[in-house]
Simulated scan of single mutants.
Amino acid sequence: MDIPMRELTDDDLALIEFAREIVDANTDGEFGVHTMGAAVREADGRMFGGINIYHFLGGPCAELVALGNARASGGREFTTIVAVGNCERGTVGPCGRDRQILFDYHPRIRVLLPTEQGIRSVAVTNLMPLAARWDAAEGTQPYDPSDFTIHNGQIS
């Protein structure tokens, strides 16, 4: 399946740079606790950052820390998110847990991640084909094709 992708905008490049600055300023080395930085953009243009807290029990990923920071700072409508690895590893796509959380809580968000064509912007729904949304009040919901917009046989 071809996944619809967008070229990066200047705002996307600024978000990547913001995440890179966070991880560069706070990393504690290749095998340290803080090895990923993330940034999320609010619809009004504000950027919020976070850094992971690695733990063998599965500490929070940088994307989740960035989302929590944004929410605590008044952010509510997020448009784009990105994670960047330390030691010049560059942009990294979200793990499965993060994808599901983004899909459940921010289904219109775009994710910046590496692809065969370079770093691109992808709708989180395109990262979750046939996913079932989770709801805090009612738990996992049945697959609902209306969660996805289909154009020419492709989710967008």
Rank of each mutant, 00 (worst) to 15 (best):
A39E: 00
A131I: 09
M128F: 00
T80H: 10
I53M: 12
H106R: 02
P60H: 13
A83V: 11
N52T: 11
L57K: 12
G139D: 04
I101K: 02
F56S: 08
E42P: 02
G50A: 12
R133E: 04
L112R: 01
T80N: 11
I119P: 00
D28Q: 11
G29D: 02
A132Y: 02
A131T: 03
G68K: 05
T115D: 09
G118P: 07
P142Q: 04
N86R: 12
L57C: 13
E138H: 13
Y105P: 00
R110F: 06
L67W: 01
A70C: 04
R46N: 07
G118C: 06
F78R: 04
E116S: 07
Y143E: 14
G45D: 06
T140N: 08
I109C: 03
A62S: 14
R133P: 00
P94T: 03
R133M: 10
D98I: 13
R120S: 02
A72Y: 05
V111K: 03
P114H: 03
N69S: 14
D135G: 05
A137Y: 03
L57E: 15
V40W: 04
P114L: 09
E116G: 12
G45A: 09
A43I: 10
R71I: 14
L102A: 00
G45H: 08
R41K: 09
C95M: 07
E88F: 07
G118V: 03
L127W: 00
H106E: 11
R99K: 12
E63C: 09
G139C: 05
D98V: 15
E77M: 10
G118E: 09
H55T: 15
H55M: 14
V84A: 06
F31G: 02
W134D: 11
I81M: 12
W134H: 14
F48K: 04
G45E: 01
N52D: 15
F78M: 11
A38F: 09
P60K: 14
R71H: 15
F56K: 14
C61F: 13
N26V: 00
C95T: 05
A38K: 12
E138W: 00
S73P: 05
T125P: 00
V33N: 11
E63T: 03
H34W: 01
T140G: 02
T115K: 13
L64D: 07
R120I: 00
M128N: 01
T125M: 08
H55R: 14
G59F: 04
A43L: 07
E77A: 12
G85K: 07
G37K: 01
G29E: 09
T35Q: 11
I81K: 02
R133L: 05
V33H: 10
P60C: 11
Q100R: 04
Q117Y: 05
F56G: 12
I119N: 10
I119H: 05
